[in-house]
Amino acid sequence: MKNIKFDKSGSAEFSKTLHARVNEYFKKTKKNRYGNSNMVLKTIVMLSVFFIPLAFISSGLVTSTWLLFVLYISSGLGMAGVGMGVMHDAIHGSYSKNPTVNKYLGYSMNLIGANASVWRIQHNVLHHTYTNIDHGDDDINAPFFLRFSPNAKRYWIHRFQYLYVWFFYGLSTISWITSKDFVRVTRYHNMGFFNKAGEYKKELLKISSWKILYYSYALVLPLIMVPLPAWIIILAFLNMHFVTGICISLVFQTAHIMSETTFPEPDEKGLITNQWAAHQLATTSNYAPKSRIFSWLIGGLNFQVEHHLFPNICHVHYRKLSKIVAETAKEFEIPYLVKTTFLKALGDHVKMLRQLGRA
């Protein structure tokens, strides 16, 4: 990856003005930037929706196939809720002012089978810094059969990706709990992360240990306790992850892989001809800004523009901040992308996938 840099001169006044207005908002309302009682409630709800069905499955009381699938799928919805509404803020350090609280709630990522340390680099460092930049943003560095950037190499199979991509979205968290974390921690080690003495080996051991713990209560214990054929239990477990993968992929992909978002390329010196804040607005889109329930369920990630500009602010504040961001962007004549509903965002995402498969 090139040493990518952003032009610090362009739109610098926009960033300065926006931050001043956001600071003034918190000063005037006397609110802090972190989570509140709403976040505590959400944490309890999402962790309960994830763990309670698994506990019931492992109780030995589940004897029917349909109930097993219902419970596993319910747990999958809770898993998605934990990922989007709890661990996401915690790993960004925006859940609480207390770093210890963020650290331990960040481990909820490990409890759902993935790894917080790997996610922190993939998401916080690479995705948030180099959004939609090929070979910089690890969220668009896809396998050869998927093309998420017009700057990536195109193959004939991409013409059909808008049809088959949903299957791979569903497999995304299955990849997380099996190979993805090991592949990425090795790649990040080669990129210069995890390079302190013995850190890489320790991280591999930690990843393995957390995954053993996860498989123990999410799959092994049900295999022991549920009086049904093993293949049915494994299939129900995979269904849980397929539901989670679909939920998380659609929420994140409809914020960046869109027809109106840009995919800038650095010049020969690695320079992006845009100031970082303006770059975030150009590469990110909001959706369903008026849907309060939907926003609560997905951890405020329908306000992706605000999240990318202020990842250190808890998502419970994004709805209010969105008005400030939109007005400031309009004042400085910077595009502020938003789709009125999630379905419109999803339709535009499909349109973009088709476009990427043809040109």
Score class of each variant (00 low, 15 high):
Ser322Cys: 06
Met1Gly: 13
Ile4Trp: 03
Ala277Thr: 05
Asp348Gly: 11
Ala345Gly: 08
Leu353Ile: 10
Leu309Trp: 10
Tyr169Thr: 03
Gly198Met: 06
Ala12Tyr: 08
Ile112Met: 15
Thr340Glu: 11
Tyr200Val: 00
Gly78Tyr: 03
Gly198Ile: 05
Ile91Thr: 15
Tyr200Cys: 02
Ser175Ala: 10
Arg319Pro: 08
Ala116Cys: 10
Ile133Pro: 03
Ile293Arg: 06
Leu18Asn: 00
His307Asn: 06
Ala20Lys: 12
Ile313Glu: 00
Asn190Lys: 11
Ser117Gln: 09
Phe332Val: 02
Val86Gly: 04
Lys27Pro: 03
Met225Ala: 14
Ser208Thr: 09
Met87Thr: 07
Lys97Val: 05
Asn102Ala: 12
Ala288Gln: 00
Phe294Gly: 12
Gly78Val: 06
Lys31Ile: 01
Phe242Glu: 03
Cys314Leu: 03
Asp181Cys: 00
Ala152His: 13
Arg120Tyr: 13
Val226Gln: 02
Tyr25Trp: 14
Lys180Leu: 01
Ser11Glu: 10
Phe242Asn: 01
Lys27Leu: 12
Leu228Ala: 09
Val125Gly: 01
Leu18Ala: 03
Lys153Met: 07
Gly270Ile: 11
Val40Trp: 13
Ser295Cys: 09
Ala20Tyr: 13
Ile112Arg: 05
Glu306Val: 08
Arg292Tyr: 11
Glu268Tyr: 15
Ser285Phe: 04
Leu61Cys: 14
Ile272Thr: 02
Leu321Gln: 01
Leu343Pro: 01
Pro335Leu: 12
Thr261Lys: 06
Tyr155Gln: 08
Asn286Val: 05
Ala55Arg: 03
Cys247Lys: 00
Phe193Met: 01
Arg319Met: 14
Lys211Asp: 04
Thr328Asn: 04
Leu171Pro: 03
Asp137Trp: 02
Asn110Ala: 07
Leu271Ser: 01
Val316Ala: 13
Phe237Leu: 15
Gly10Ala: 13
Asn239Met: 14
Leu235Tyr: 09
Ser285Leu: 14
Asn98Thr: 12
Phe69Tyr: 11
Leu163Glu: 11
Trp231His: 13
Phe310Pro: 01
Tyr217Ala: 02
Gly93Lys: 07
Asn102Lys: 05
Asn312Thr: 08
Ile298Met: 14
Tyr95Glu: 01
Val251Pro: 02
Met1Ser: 11
Ala218Val: 10
Lys2Gln: 15
His279Gly: 03
His135Tyr: 15
Met39Phe: 15
Thr262Ala: 10
Lys5Glu: 08
Arg159Ile: 06
Lys42Cys: 09
Ala282Glu: 15
Ala12Thr: 07
